[in-house]
């Protein structure tokens, strides 16, 4: 990347480039990854300084998709087993689907059924149950030997349930008491997981 190009980039950012130079520069940007990166950095820096909100600024889906496609072994050059090919193909599809999901979240309510149907079509993907163990059962990390003398399984279970209910109650009160941030509410949501067993 030449000094002149860098200066042109800077001028472009400031809106001080004539149309002819701009076309030439954009062509260069397209063909030169280093310049493209530099341009992205300029935008990021400018946005950060100005405080502009650009939610997807750092997200270049087209680049990610073509990169994934590039890395995918083609049928001529690979000796890999068919199942691997199938898997590699799926990962690209999955990342594209993920991008769609992000966009779909904030669709108006009445468009929700379409989204659900889309999800339903993907029902072959196995849904892994998240590990909720830390919230479900706070484990005692220190126990007095005297205290648990003659305590049976059922009583321990009771003790566990009591601790869980105290945790939940505390989370709810914190949420109402200092409802300034959503954090305590998120805790409430987490304790809800202890209900399904």
């Amino acid at each position: 990347m030449s000094e002149k190009q860098t200066e042109s980039l800077s001028a472009l950012m400031d809106g001080e480039l004539d149309e002819l130079s701009m076309r030439r520069l954009l062509n260069d940007v397209d063909s030169d990854p280093a310049m493209k990166a530099q341009w992205a950095r300029y935008h990021l820096a400018r946005d950060a300084i100005k405080g502009d909100s650009s939610v997807f600024a750092a997200m270049d889906i087209s680049a990610a998709v073509s990169e994934a496609l590039d890395q995918e072994p083609t049928s001529q050059q690979t000796t890999q087993k068919p199942w691997f090919k199938a898997f590699a193909g799926m990962s690209v599809a999955a990342s594209v689907a993920f991008a769609v999901v992000i966009g779909a979240r904030f669709n108006p309510l009445n468009e929700q059924p379409a989204f659900d149907a889309q999800l339903a079509n993907k029902s072959k993907v196995e849904i892994v149950k998240p590990d909720v163990s830390t919230f479900r059962s706070p484990s005692m990390i220190a126990q007095s030997p005297d205290a648990i003398d003659g305590v049976n399984e059922q009583e321990l279970q009771q003790a566990q349930e009591r601790l869980n209910s105290y945790l939940k109650q505390h989370a709810q009160d914190s949420a109402i008491g200092q409802g300034r941030t959503a954090m305590p509410f998120a805790r409430v949501v987490n304790f809800e997981t202890s209900k399904e067993k």
């Binding site: 830390t134 919230f135 706070p138 484990s139 005692m140 990390i141 220190a142 126990q143 007095s144 005297d146 205290a147 648990i148 003659g150 305590v151 009583e155 321990l156 009771q158 003790a159 601790l163 105290y166 945790l167 505390h170 989370a171 805790r187 987490n190």
Partner: peptide, 18 residues
Amino acid sequence: EKALDEGTAQSGPTVLAV
């Protein structure tokens, strides 16, 4: 009636002491 558990436990950021 009787002591079932005693000690401290941790659940995420929340601590319990019995």
